[in-house]
Write a protein that binds this DNA or RNA. Structure first.
Lengths: 156, 156
DNA sequence: TAAATATCAGACAAATAGGTCTTTTATTCC
DNA sequence: GGAATAAAAGACCTATTTGTCTGATATTTA
């Protein structure tokens, strides 16, 4: 809603990698897709984009896959959003008015400015390390309702 | 982005009516569409929905059109949003996780709760009267960049 | 080198959102 | 009643997003 589906999946996969083994450890997109409830081929494209933007590295062949390209402290969710959705996702007027700005504000302009600020803060105030720490301590969770299959046994 | 295009247009038309003559005065959707930069037929459907939900009244024939159905103080933008987009637009997790809640929060759950609260406040803290007052005094504006035509002379 | 694994590139399909048009119906004015 | 006006209903089209598939390429292992 606020983010595209593609971006949701992108964030999920990055968080997943951050909680698993950190940068440099490769996982096949196939496996990650299962774990984060994203369509395999769709996630594959998303990872391609993240790789092009230097957030992931990718490697072909056995033991290949994708891995975080940078240190956990060097990546924020905003980096992912910028890569997938683009930053201008947050530059629009609530009412879609073109000239809306502080000098010609729409009826909800001021409130919206504050909300956008809070959204940016949500996405860039904490890096992957912080977020992974919260996940590790159980303070937060990435659990989702998996429809169809439940869990991998590691056999694939 | 946060609201659908349909909802944007719906809000615009309601604000337009609020600043023009208040409840009970009918304007053809055609004219309103020109003024609020919305496709005529599209806005027509939107107004139909708003009428079904008791926000607008509509009347066929000459001197017909749509008009606000209730007093300006009885309508907020949230009423429009609920009518067009539905309230559950604000009930989703940023990451699209199904079980996300305060007891199983996603990594940005808490921040998102605050942001949603602010968005609801933006949409329901002030009624059409308040918003129309700000527009009347020039404190805010509904101006938009009209592509193609500039203004009606009343001839069509 | 052969077989297996996995990404890459890009075509393709399905679903949804956004937008247009035509026909019908109700209303007003003459 | 007849002409004009304007909404109502619903079919239809277009663009974007989401999702799937195929063939090619690179890499590893044996």
């Amino acid at each position: 809603m606020i983010l595209s589906k593609a971006c949701e999946y992108g964030i999920r996969v990055v968080l997943l990698l951050a909680t698993q083994d950190g940068p440099g450890v490769y996982h096949p997109v196939r496996t990650l897709a299962d774990r984060c409830g994203s369509p395999h081929y769709f996630l594959s494209k998303i990872c391609g984009q993240l790789a092009r933007d230097g957030i992931l590295n990718s490697h072909k062949g056995p033991n290949g896959g994708v891995a975080l390209a940078r240190s956990l402290t060097d990546v924020t969710l905003m980096h992912v959003v910028e890569s997938i959705d683009g930053r201008d996702r947050f530059d629009t007027c609530v009412l879609g008015l073109e000239p809306c700005s502080s000098s010609m504000p729409c009826p909800v302009h001021d409130e919206w400015v504050d909300i956008k600020t809070a959204m940016l803060a949500m996405l860039e105030n904490r890096n992957l390390q912080d977020l992974a720490d919260d996940l590790a301590t159980g303070k937060t969770s990435l659990k989702l309702i998996l429809t169809g299959r439940d869990e991998e046994t590691g056999s694939d």
